[in-house]
Amino acid sequence: MTTLLAIGTAKGLFLATSDDGRRSWQVSGVHFPMTGVYSVAMDKRRPTPRLLAGVTSSHFGPSVATSDDLGASWQEPAEPPVAFPDGTGSSLERVWQLTPGAADEPGVVYAGTQPSALFRSVDGGISYELVRPLWDHPHRTQWDAGFGGQAIHTVLPHPADPAQILVAMSTGGVYRTADAGASWRPQNTGIRAYFMPDEWPEFGQCVHKVARDAADAERLYAQNHHGVYRSTDGGLSWQSIADGLPGDFGFPIVAHPRRGGTIYTFPLVADRERFPVDRRCRVFRSTDAGDTWQPLTDGLPTGPFYPAVLRDAMCVDDADPAGVYFGTRSGEVYASRDEGDSWSLVAAHLPDVLCVRAAEV
């Protein structure tokens, strides 16, 4: 079985493959040179997996490209497939997230964008339509831009109920629909926004990433702008799980693909000091849903380490045992073939890594 690792960077897309159980990697590229690749998805609901890439060119603007031959060739439409309708007064800046829908909706793909909006495709990601009720939400005028822009960066369809979809944005927080997008409610109770006059608002939090537990679809994990949280009721309420971490600031949070309660994150010092805590390269893993945390360092750099890991620059694959991957802002990509117990270098000297996605293909 081949493992494919897609690495989106500020200057294009790189593809790494391993045919020996993820012991060694061959890196190819660059696809879409001098183009920011902010999102990648691997849609395995098809007989041949489809790759989707959210690309942003400084000359031609943002678009979504697709490949049905594992990246050997790419199709990019002449007109951007994700576009705001006339009358919205907005234009697309970039596609931050591409997420295949539920297993029983084989054509559905979601796109989270900047400015904060959700688009839905029913043809496998070839064309998209704005989810208008979220765009027309009365809170939207109060959603503000975070340091990286004002965008929906997380889209989590419910695995057992396609009518339930959770999104997260920075800033704005977590919102959820239970009626296939017809209405949306904020789901931020318990998440702190220290930078606001009311530190516990209904909405407005700067949530950096949300992940869903593999065994319990109602259990969610959130990495916030200062704060790491768990919800056991589908996002209705959140509790801190930051105790045991060296810092509560960071960007990614990733859930194991099969084992409930196992999650990964990469802590940084603070919003004003975006370096790894103690200048050490450490992934932290919890196997009890955030009650306790363990640093994972075997095979990672031991000297002073300064790069950050962005919100979508950490992922897991679907192999057994699961692979864990992360890329840094200084262009290194690391992989673990044993669920984080040990690590090896996949690539170095790449451009700023914006996102990674991996799967057996």
Results as ranks from 00 to 15, higher is better:
residue 205 Q to V: 03
residue 356 V to K: 03
residue 20 D to L: 12
residue 167 V to I: 14
residue 359 A to F: 06
residue 170 S to Y: 00
residue 145 A to V: 03
residue 257 P to W: 13
residue 45 R to M: 12
residue 208 H to D: 02
residue 46 R to Y: 04
residue 189 T to M: 09
residue 277 V to Y: 13
residue 245 L to Y: 13
residue 138 P to D: 13
residue 32 F to V: 06
residue 282 R to M: 13
residue 46 R to Q: 15
residue 169 M to A: 11
residue 39 S to H: 01
residue 342 S to R: 08
residue 290 G to E: 11
residue 281 C to F: 04
residue 85 P to N: 07
residue 103 A to L: 13
residue 152 I to P: 00
residue 132 R to C: 01
residue 298 D to R: 15
residue 272 R to E: 12
residue 114 Q to L: 01
residue 299 G to N: 10
residue 216 D to Q: 14
residue 128 Y to Q: 05
residue 223 Q to V: 06
residue 114 Q to P: 00
residue 250 G to L: 06
residue 195 F to I: 03
residue 105 E to I: 03
residue 40 V to A: 03
residue 354 L to F: 11
residue 77 P to V: 00
residue 276 P to W: 02
residue 302 T to L: 06
residue 207 V to N: 04
residue 301 P to C: 08
residue 245 L to M: 14
residue 104 D to N: 15
residue 197 P to L: 11
residue 22 R to W: 07
residue 214 A to S: 12
residue 130 L to A: 04
residue 178 A to K: 11
residue 331 G to H: 09
residue 17 T to K: 15
residue 26 Q to M: 05
residue 110 Y to D: 02
residue 242 A to H: 10
residue 40 V to F: 10
residue 334 Y to R: 08
residue 38 Y to L: 02
residue 173 G to H: 04
residue 226 H to I: 13
residue 182 A to S: 15
residue 265 T to V: 09
residue 69 D to R: 06
residue 350 L to D: 05
residue 228 V to K: 00
residue 31 H to S: 09
residue 36 G to F: 02
residue 351 P to A: 12
residue 160 A to C: 10
residue 42 M to L: 15
residue 48 T to M: 11
residue 23 R to I: 10
residue 359 A to D: 14
residue 49 P to I: 10
residue 338 D to N: 15
residue 339 E to M: 05
residue 252 P to F: 05
residue 9 T to C: 15
residue 189 T to C: 06
residue 208 H to S: 02
residue 288 D to T: 11
residue 109 V to D: 03
residue 186 P to D: 11
residue 275 F to T: 12
residue 205 Q to A: 02
residue 112 G to M: 01
residue 212 R to L: 05
residue 39 S to I: 00
residue 58 S to H: 14
residue 6 A to K: 01
residue 68 D to F: 06
residue 115 P to C: 04
residue 135 W to A: 13
residue 246 P to V: 07
residue 181 G to Y: 10
residue 215 A to M: 07
residue 231 S to A: 07
residue 246 P to S: 13
residue 247 G to V: 08
residue 133 P to N: 13
residue 113 T to H: 01
